[in-house]
């Protein structure tokens, strides 16, 4: 594995150790894998939950800088969670970075992803470099002001 990329993108994000990240995936191994990758990159404030309901309840209690959400989860899916996050963002005058993880390229997702201002789509299986790139992009000032989401490379066709 390559070390954390020292690209200009990294300059967008200061105090990586203070970043708070929510991971919601019904497969705990995915949560543990992402947590390991984040910690290796200097991001230690990571909360991993096993389903959408747990994430939903946690979001009512506290906010996060970034949410990495599986699209298919029991009770509340990643798209519904994105809507919840955006509603809370409006109330709190903040903007949470949102990454949706999906296994399939599914064009039916597009309107829902756009409507909820999802910043990045990340295709599973997860690759470390791609995940880090998605995280940096989701947290960059560009994405904080520009609402058009960026898809994973294999999802590009969906956004034309």
């Amino acid at each position: 594995m390559q070390p954390f990329p020292q690209s200009p993108q990294r300059n967008y994000i200061r105090n990586l150790d203070r970043l708070s990240v929510l991971i919601a995936d019904d497969d705990p191994f995915v949560g543990r894998l992402i947590t390991a990758i984040l910690q290796d990159s200097g991001i230690y404030n990571v909360h991993s939950v096993k389903d959408g309901e747990e994430a939903f309840n946690l979001l009512k209690e506290r906010s996060f800088d970034l949410a990495i959400l599986d699209i298919h989860m029991p009770f509340v899916n990643g798209i519904a969670l994105s809507a919840q996050i955006r509603a809370l963002d409006r109330l709190q005058r903040r903007r949470t970075g949102i990454i949706i993880m999906t296994t399939h390229c599914d064009a039916t997702l597009v309107p829902f992803v756009r409507a909820n201002e999802v910043d990045q789509l990340c295709l599973k299986p997860l690759a470390r470099a791609n995940l880090i790139q998605r995280i940096m992009s989701a947290l960059s000032p560009r994405n904080q002001s520009q609402r058009e989401p960026e898809p994973d490379t294999e999802l590009n066709a969906l956004w034309i």
Binding site: D27, F29, V30, L33, T103, K124
Partner: peptide, 10 residues
């Protein structure tokens, strides 16, 4: 669905 999403990541 779960295996398709996680197995490749490992």
């Amino acid at each position: 669905h779960m295996q398709s999403g996680s197995a490749g990541s490992f």
